[in-house]
Structure formats: C-alpha cells, structure tokens
Nucleic acid binder design. Structure first.
Lengths: 136, 136
DNA sequence: ATAAAACTCTACTAATTTGGTAGGAATTAA
DNA sequence: TTAATTCCTACCAAATTAGTAGAGTTTTAT
C-alpha cells in the first residue's frame, strides 16, 4: 500500500497544478481543500521542495509553486521520494538496490525474475505525469 | 516492498515444492536451507496451513505438504494471505476494498484510475503459480 | 513404555515505520 | 509593525513487523 504521506503528496501536487496561477498556493489552502493535517502536510511539502519538485515563497502571500514543470514530474518520482523503492524486493530495485540478505545465491534467486517482471509492468503506468493525471 | 514474512512464505513453498516426496518436509529443514528463523517460520507455516495452502503431519517424521496443488497456488494468493491487498490504494482493492477516508468525492477521485490500471498490470504477473515459478 | 522428533499454540518483546503534534524562528507583504 | 506564511527541530503515539520463549500435543522408532 501507498503510505498516506505519498497519497497526500500526490494529491497536493494535483491540487497545486490545478490552482497555481499568478500567486503561489499556500499549505493552508491545500490542507483545507484536500483534507490533510496541516503540520503533517508542511513536512511533506518540505520534502518535495528539498527534492526540487516544488519551490516555495516565504512570507505573507507566500506558498508553493512547481519547480520542475508538472509535465515532467511523474507519479513514480513522488513515490520514490516519499516511500522509497517501487520494486517489491530490494534486489530488483533500480534506485534502491540492495542484496537480499537471506538469499543463498542471488544469481539463481527464483524471485528475481518474477519481481523484476512485475516492476517492468508497473513502471510505465507510474510514469504518468502530474499534468496528465490531473486532466483525465 | 514485500514483507519478510511474505518472502519467507514464498520461498518456503518453493522449497516445499522441490523437496516434497514420499515424506513431508520439516520446518527445520526449510529453516536451515532457506535461512529463515525457525520460530518465525513456524508461525508463517501455520498461517499457510490455516488458509489451506499446506497441510501438516505431526510427530516424528512429520512435516508439511501441499494441501492445494502447487499448480494452483499462485504467488498472489500467498501475498494476500500474508501481506494483504495487492492494490496500492484501498479503494481499488478487489479483496480488501475500503473507502479512502480523505477522498472528497470517490467517484471522481483522480487516483483511482491510475492505481486500478496499475493493479491490472500487476495481477497477471503475480498469478504465476508456485509450480511454474519453481521450474523457470 | 519411552525418548526423540516434530507440529501447535499463546504470549511476550524489541525495533522500525507511520502518522502525526508542538512551538517557535525567519521572512515578507501590506 | 503586524499578520500571514514558510522553515526547522524536536517530540510523541499507534501500528506494524520481525522475531523469541516456552509449554503442550502428537507420532514414530526402539
């Protein structure tokens, strides 16, 4: 399952996409309209900012905007930032690879083929961008 | 990510498939050969037995056998038993459906389409059986 | 009979992750 | 200067995960 943090992050970005205009979008308005606990949201937005997905403007009338274009930010990017690997076993993860500790022989580990096939099926779906997602 | 319990469960079943013969396979031998903590494994095997995936024979020379044929036990079945839903959001789960609490309007929840598409891509891969998986 | 090898069951525990909350400092527009 | 806003650190509670402990039950071989 996705964590709530990841769900909140994706929803926030969709909201941002739909509401970004001449002025940036405040955390408060995201919180209220998307029903996300304010303080929790702040932390999520910070993480997205630190990963250069969004940028912030401080002070009154401040808020958030996209840093990268929403046409290039993919759902998979957000999931990796917030929840970590997409793959279900670490030894087939592209971005978070780790040897499976208890695997006797990784070369012939029988789970690798299945779960790398699974990852290959998942990725294209998750490569949808925030912009595309918001419009459908 | 898969939980260790689920990884252990799948590996145990593959081991069982490869070693089941005239005599059943003991938890001890699975534990030693697959490098799984013995007492932890016992609990996992119990769950698989309670869900009629395997059956047990008690006493000396006892152990485990398949209850259902390994040609019919799918990876997805084990994952659901041990880890729960396959879908990444509860509102698109077939077997563990739940309304997403914070969703303002489920009908138009923008995440549903994406994650139900994802689930549809994942399922066929995970429908591979223990028998098939063991042979490739 | 009895000892050994196995499964069965309940209960507990430790570590990690998740989902937050609290409070204040810094910044900016009006 | 004040109100609105982000920024940052620290903390906390609940849930989940990954085990461990130990006593009990069943069966086989001797």
């Amino acid at each position: 399952m996705l964590s709530k943090r990841a769900r909140y992050a994706i929803k926030s970005l969709i909201y941002l996409y739909k509401n970004e205009g001449s002025s940036p979008v405040s955390a408060k308005s995201i919180s209220v309209n998307e029903n996300i606990p304010f303080k929790f949201l702040e932390k999520i937005l910070r993480e997205l900012r630190q990963h250069k997905i969004i940028k912030s403007e401080r002070g009154a009338e401040g808020g958030y905007r996209f840093f990268k274009s929403p046409q290039t930010v993919r759902v998979v990017d957000i999931m990796r930032i917030i929840d970590g690997p997409i793959a279900l076993v670490p030894c087939v993860s592209e971005n978070f690879y780790e040897k499976c500790e208890e695997c006797v022989d990784e070369e012939i580990c029988i789970l690798r083929r299945l779960f790398s096939e699974l990852r290959d099926q998942m990725l294209p779906v998750l490569e949808e961008t925030i912009a595309d997602l918001s419009q459908k």
